[in-house]
Write a protein that binds this DNA or RNA. Structure first.
Length: 291
DNA sequence: AATGTGCACAACCGCAAACGG
DNA sequence: TCCGTTTGCGGTTGTGCACAT
């Protein structure tokens, strides 16, 4: 903690006086943001309760801390969660569950709040629509065996696209959605379940459509072979992906039985079943990922 | 144009752990 | 060791926007 912030502890009179002060709640104003930024710039962060008082903010320390960490902090990144990050979130969540802060530590610039929101709004939404529990084995398996490979595939595809046509290719991939491609799988599922023929196209599983360039910064495909090659990769992503590949390798039979026994897939027309031999081939390719 | 609905995200709340006198 | 305060975390709620009806 910054020494100056520590020194800025109000006396008792001030404290009791301000206990009666009306505290502001709700959205922060620009003025409040500036006050907080200015104060932290000169005094540093920490001791949030006294910081709030000293900065003249009619906010709780908690509120100030949250505002700083989730929004004002200079290194915070918001919006446009990349495919790479999406895959990492799915992977880390399958490992740690709702340990948002722990997951966030592996995504530089991302806050636990944002990841939590992402999970609730995107991933849980799919579970809800599939009428299953996000914590169920079925859902977890589907994430692991269907969506995550799909993400990998899309990352690979985008990497290829970025190099084969680096100047003009602009794919309208729903970059915010974990399952833009995989969404075809899930939407196919409930399209049939709900007897709706339009769900796949009319349902906006990711509301924002981002150009592929949002994540191509992270990748460049290898020219020498078909393996994915990553330039300046996020080491966490690399580790997660390799672990994923290893998982498939070690669970080959489970993988096949899942495909045979998954009731969601049973409801799908074979032509719509994107989880097919092609995917299996794709996963086999992943075994050689960056090895 | 008005209203309803769903979504994404910011912010709050309660609790527990960590800290410090 | 105790106890008050601070910090951190995960769950939940509130709000504004976009789109559909």
């Amino acid at each position: 903690m910054d020494v100056k912030a520590r020194d800025c502890v109000p006396n008792i009179e001030q404290s009791s006086e301000e206990d009666h002060m009306e505290l502001r709640r709700g959205p922060w104003t620009v003025e409040e943001d500036f006050k907080l930024i200015d104060f932290i710039a000169t005094h540093g962060e920490g001791r949030w309760n006294s910081l709030a008082r000293c900065a003249g903010l009619k906010r709780t320390g908690k509120s100030c801390r949250l505002r700083w960490l989730n929004y004002l902090r200079p290194d915070v990144r918001r919006g446009n969660i990349t495919l790479q990050e999406q895959l990492l979130i799915l992977q880390l969540h399958s490992r740690w569950g709702n340990r948002w802060s722990k997951i966030a530590q592996h995504l530089p610039g991302r806050t636990d709040n944002e990841i939590k929101n992402y999970w609730r709004t995107r991933v849980q939404k799919h579970a809800k629509r599939l009428k299953c529990d996000v914590n169920s084995k079925q859902f977890k398996d589907t994430m692991r065996y269907l969506w995550m490979p799909r993400l990998l595939e899309r990352i690979q595809a985008s990497a290829t696209a970025s190099t084969t046509n680096s100047t003009s290719v602009v794919r309208t991939v729903s970059n915010d959605d974990p399952l833009g491609g995989a969404a075809q799988v899930t939407s196919s599922s409930y399209t049939l379940e709900n007897s709706s023929t339009t769900a796949a196209s009319s349902d906006s599983f990711g509301t924002q459509v981002s150009p592929v360039s949002d994540f191509t910064d992270y990748y460049s495909s290898s020219s020498s072979n078909n393996n994915i090659s990553v330039k300046n990769p996020n080491p966490n992503f690399l580790e997660a992906t390799q672990e994923l590949s290893g998982y498939y390798y070690n669970h080959g039979t489970d993988f096949q039985s899942l495909e045979q026994n998954n009731p969601w897939l049973d409801t799908m027309d074979a032509s719509n079943n994107l989880f097919n031999a092609e995917d299996f081939h794709f996963l086999q390719q992943q075994f050689n990922f960056n090895m």
